[in-house]
Write a protein that binds this DNA or RNA. Structure first.
Length: 261
DNA sequence: ATGCCCTATGATATAGGA
């Protein structure tokens, strides 16, 4: 079984590359983030034509998540339990489903913007709702393989950014954000470290300043798996080739290969 | 080489991304 997660930075703009990648990489399940479209505008038809059914959860211009599967899509859950709103809106940042016996969550954790911004406290509250939701699911089905995959918008360690000195006073590397990841792990998840195709662990490179070719990246797209899931994994890797060329997302897909449960 | 920001929006600027 092949599972992947990919922040596509607009499914509309990325559709040609997404379709090509589905054909070449042939994943069974794909978690997408940053659709930047409404659920109604999600391009189901060309994706279905490749054999995937999809649940898309998007409320417009920002965020939006989806799960694509060609091995079943059951028990779909939109949003986290008690997911906090931002500016009065519960944003479309989480969707869960069971695919081929594996429980998956596609998540797009809020950015946080600046450590003293409202968005940052929102980010931490959002993480706690994620932790709580996962805790409940793990308790209800401890033997079911489960993974939370997506754009966590936190680099777990200093080695997960190209130069920690560049991140003074910025989000994504602060202690409270990393503590939020640790709290998730404490519920029984492990951070599955992906194999790199080129000696750097990054999954995101800014569009600006030639960041990709300079190796100025960050590992913020993560795979958090319970032991039942981790025990099935044969490989985890970052498809950085997908960051190359014209019309690329600023994130690369992270691919997980595992034995079917 | 992978090459110096991109996307959606009531749009000719702006907000958000990280």
């Amino acid at each position: 079984m092949r599972i992947a997660t990919w922040n596509v930075n607009s499914i509309g703009a990325r559709l040609p590359r997404v379709l090509e990648w589905l054909e070449s990489a042939s994943p069974d399940v794909v978690a997408l983030q940053e659709l930047k479209c409404t659920s109604a505008d999600f391009p189901h038809m060309p994706i279905q034509a490749l054999g995937y059914e999809a649940v898309a959860h998007g409320n417009g211009r920002w965020n939006g998540v989806a799960l694509l599967s060609r091995i079943g899509l059951e028990d779909v859950t939109l949003d986290l339990t008690d997911q906090p709103p931002y500016d009065g809106v519960v944003e479309t940042r989480a969707v869960g489903a069971t695919c081929g016996g594996v429980r998956l969550w596609s998540v797009y954790v809020p950015n946080g913007r600046e450590p003293d911004h409202d968005h940052y406290s929102y980010k931490l509250a959002w993480f706690d709702a994620l932790r709580s939701t996962v805790k409940t699911e793990l308790a209800a089905a401890p033997d079911t393989p489960l993974a939370v995959i997506g754009d966590f918008n936190v680099a777990p360690t200093d080695a997960d950014v190209w130069d920690i000195a560049q991140f003074t006073d910025s989000t994504h590397v602060t202690v409270p954000e990393r503590d939020a990841l640790a709290a998730l792990r404490a519920e029984g998840l492990v951070d599955l470290m992906p194999r790199s195709l080129k000696g750097e662990p990054y999954t995101f490179w800014d569009y600006r300043n030639g960041a990709f070719h300079r190796g100025w990246g960050m590992r913020i797209d993560l795979v958090y798996a319970n032991p039942a899931f981790a025990g099935l994994v044969s490989d985890t890797w970052i498809d950085r080739n997908e960051r190359k060329g014209k019309g690329a997302s600023d994130h690369a897909p992270v691919v997980i290969d595992l034995e079917a449960p």
